[in-house]
Simulated scan of single mutants.
Amino acid sequence: MLNQVYRLVSERKFESFVVSEKIHEKSVVVKPTYLSICHADQRYYSFKRRTEVINEKLPMALIHEGIGKVVATSDDKFSIGDRVIFIPSLPVEKDELIEENYLESTKFRSSNYDGLMQEYIISDISRIVKIPDGLENTIVAFAEMLTVAHQGITRLSRVSDISDSVIGIWGDGNLGYMVSALIKCIYPESKVYVFGHHQAKLNYFSFVDRTFLTDNIPENVRIDQAIEATGGLGSQMAIDQIINSLEPEGASVLMGVSEENVPVNTRMVLQKGLTFVGSSRSSRSDFIEVMNMLTKNPLLVDKMGILVDTVRDIKSIDDIGQAFEHDQAHAFGKTIMHWHL
């Protein structure tokens, strides 16, 4: 079938491409309906990646957070009209030890494979998950980011008991907010401290136990585990503060993406016997678990509703650019594109 794909071709410029798609026996045809803009998409849109990376990947359709409706299927697991959430990781092999999102061969939408800004998505049945009734489109549109948060928490729980400990979250943005909300949902007996740069953003974290500005952390603050959710230029300060604040033999998950190498105080890591674990993206199991959690926890849904900054109708390529420009001007919350193309 012929499909319209909207790709980034140069800085802040999108163009439409007509692509011939093959529909296989296990394919499901999905019409995208609500898409969410991520910081990773913005780095491509604004050409904040290295030149060689940009040149290698463009032209490419952006967006990896989103949902759609099934319009054609030959598989009895789905019906026409079903709402589904897209899993952006596209594995081409299975490994008994390595999760799909860490395999070097796995493709990822809007990174090394076309994203969701398309007329239709031809998806394998394993790359979509049915959305339970009752969940709002504008919230599940960015639930992929919740699955990333869930992956990080799961990886931390594998190396340290976090059921009733003090957990520090570095990062007062969307990811830090989601991680904090999920921890409070999964481990209600734990204490969550959030460390951020902006008091205005920290005010949104009313459900955690304590918040701190990163330039005014009391010397006696100690934590059992930490999650770094800052990324970028803030990673170095965050990791330094995590190392200083962790109790001996504490553990931390690193989730923030940085374009540059980040120095680490290895002397104190060794002296305190600390464990650091990397976490990136998510797998199908995270999507299934997050859908279940949203269904069973209305308070979690309410917390996610705060992140819906704006919903913009997308009926033209110009509308796409305007949505990205709007999103850049807002440091907290998610810009949702109601996709009509």
Rank of each mutant, 00 (worst) to 15 (best):
S282D: 03
S20K: 11
D318R: 00
I217S: 08
E247N: 13
L135T: 05
V71W: 01
E100H: 09
E260A: 07
R281K: 14
M237H: 14
D313I: 06
I23K: 02
R43E: 09
F276G: 15
M337G: 08
V311E: 07
H326A: 11
M145K: 01
F14W: 01
I169F: 03
V262S: 13
D327I: 05
I87N: 14
G173C: 08
L182W: 05
D286G: 11
N137R: 04
E247R: 14
L213R: 13
R222W: 06
S105A: 06
A149Y: 05
V194E: 00
I122H: 02
R281G: 12
K26F: 12
I80P: 04
N137T: 00
V71A: 03
T33R: 04
K184C: 09
W170H: 12
S258E: 15
F195V: 13
E56A: 10
R158C: 14
M237N: 13
L254W: 12
G134H: 05
E189I: 12
L156W: 09
L146E: 09
S282C: 13
V148Y: 07
R158I: 07
Y204A: 08
D302A: 13
R109S: 14
I87P: 01
P88T: 08
A229E: 03
E96N: 13
N137Y: 07
I288F: 05
I63P: 03
Y187I: 04
G152E: 02
L274Y: 09
D82N: 03
F47S: 14
L294N: 03
I23P: 13
D133V: 00
R312C: 11
R50T: 11
A40G: 14
D172R: 11
L62E: 08
E11M: 12
L307I: 12
F78Y: 13
V18E: 02
S10L: 10
D215I: 09
V301N: 13
N174E: 09
F86N: 10
S252G: 15
G168H: 01
L270W: 11
M1P: 08
P88M: 07
I54V: 14
T295Y: 00
V269N: 13
E11C: 11
G333A: 12
I243R: 07
I87S: 13
A229K: 05
F207P: 03
S235F: 06
F47M: 08
D319Y: 04
H197K: 15
V257K: 06
K315F: 05
D309P: 05
W339Q: 01
G81E: 12
I128D: 08
I23R: 13
E11F: 00
V5D: 07
V53G: 07
L300C: 08
S258H: 10
G176T: 02
V18C: 09
P88F: 03
G81R: 04
D319M: 07
I23L: 11
E21S: 03
I153V: 04
Y193L: 05
L294T: 01
S20Y: 10
S74P: 01
I139P: 01
I169W: 08
F287I: 04
N216L: 11
S258C: 10
Y102G: 07
I153L: 09
P298M: 11
H198V: 12
D240N: 15
S79C: 11
D209N: 08
R43V: 00
Y187T: 02
Q151V: 05
I63M: 06
K26T: 15
